[in-house]
Simulated assay, not measured.
Amino acid sequence: MTFDIKEIMEIIPHRQPMLLVDRVEVIEEDKKAVGYKGVTYNEPFFAGHFPQEPVMPGVLIMEAMAQTTAVLLLNKEEMRGKVGYFGSMNKVRFRKKVVPGSLLRMEVEILKQRGPVAVSYGKAYTEEGLAAEGEMTFMIG
């Protein structure tokens, strides 16, 4: 099942400039998804991070993975209207820069879910290889 940007905005509350995922493919229901973000020169954060050498902030790479996870968690009808709030990030590592013109590909997997708490692990890739990875905890409310 694949969600385009319009469908994503029906599932999660994020809007521009904080919507950081363009498409999500659910690979395994309730378990795995792949999200995509075309990183353009027009991203507002590039104006200040850094003007001489634009680099996507690591925290926004993690946010893009979190949004991909939120689509995976909240795409069911009974979850509509709920929000996945970030609880924590653990074991986060940044490996390569994400620059304008990159296609960010985010692979996320739910490690465990109990009630309103879910833990996932994500990896973000560009054409250059693994850019970032880390564990994310969410509270669904």
Rank of each mutant, 00 (worst) to 15 (best):
Ala70Tyr: 07
Ile140Gln: 05
Thr137Ala: 15
Gly35Arg: 11
Ala131Val: 10
Phe50Met: 13
Lys91Trp: 05
Ser88Trp: 04
Glu10Asn: 11
Glu7Ile: 06
Glu28Val: 01
Phe50Ala: 06
Glu107Ile: 05
Glu77Asp: 08
Glu109Pro: 06
Leu60Pro: 01
Met79Leu: 02
Pro57Asp: 10
Leu72Glu: 07
Val108Cys: 01
Met65Cys: 00
Arg15Thr: 05
Thr69Ala: 11
Gly115Ser: 08
Val26Thr: 08
Lys112Trp: 00
Val55Ala: 10
Arg80His: 11
Arg114Ala: 05
Gly58Glu: 03
Glu63Lys: 13
Tyr125Leu: 13
Phe94His: 04
Val108Ala: 08
His49Ala: 08
Gly35Cys: 10
Val119Arg: 10
Phe3Ser: 07
Gly48Leu: 04
Gly84Cys: 03
Gly87Thr: 15
Glu109Gln: 08
Pro44Tyr: 12
Val39Ile: 15
Pro57Trp: 09
Lys31Cys: 12
Pro57Cys: 12
Gly35Tyr: 10
Val34Asp: 02
Ile61Leu: 09
Ile11Ser: 01
Leu104Met: 06
Val59Phe: 04
Phe138Tyr: 14
Lys82Phe: 04
Phe94Trp: 00
Val92Phe: 10
Met136Gln: 11
Gly38Lys: 11
Glu133Arg: 00
Met139Val: 08
Phe94Gln: 01
Ala47Leu: 14
Gln16Ile: 13
Ala64Gly: 06
Val117Asp: 14
Ile140Met: 02
Gly81Leu: 03
Gly48Phe: 00
Lys97Leu: 12
Ala64Met: 00
Thr68Phe: 03
Glu53Cys: 14
Glu78Ala: 01
Asp22Thr: 03
Asn42Leu: 11
Ala66Gln: 09
Leu104Arg: 04
Val24Gln: 03
Leu74Tyr: 06
Arg93Asp: 12
Met18Ile: 13
Glu127His: 04
Leu130Ala: 02
Asn75Met: 12
Gly48Asp: 09
Ala33Arg: 03
Glu53His: 15
Ala132Cys: 11
Met56Ile: 00
Val39Ala: 02
Thr40Arg: 13
Ile61Gly: 04
Met18Val: 09
Val119Trp: 05
Ala132His: 02
Met65Tyr: 03
Thr40Val: 11
Leu74Trp: 05
Leu111Cys: 04
Glu133Ile: 12
Gly101Asn: 12
Met106Leu: 15
Glu43Met: 05
Glu25Ser: 11
Pro100Val: 06
Val39Cys: 09
Pro116Thr: 09
Glu7Leu: 06
Asn90Leu: 10
Pro13Val: 14
His14Lys: 12
Glu133Pro: 07
Ala66Leu: 11
Ile27Phe: 06
Phe3Thr: 08
Ile110Val: 15
Ala132Asn: 08
Ile140Leu: 12
Val26Trp: 06
Met79Lys: 13
Asn75Cys: 13
Val21Met: 01
Tyr41Trp: 07
Pro54Leu: 03
Leu130Met: 11
Ile61Met: 04
Pro57Asn: 13
Met62Trp: 00
Val117Asn: 15
Ala47Arg: 15
Leu130Asn: 02
Ile5Arg: 10
Val39Tyr: 07
Arg114Asp: 05
Thr40Leu: 12
His14Glu: 05
Lys123Leu: 12
Pro13Ala: 10
Thr137Gln: 15
Asn90Gly: 01
Val108Gln: 01
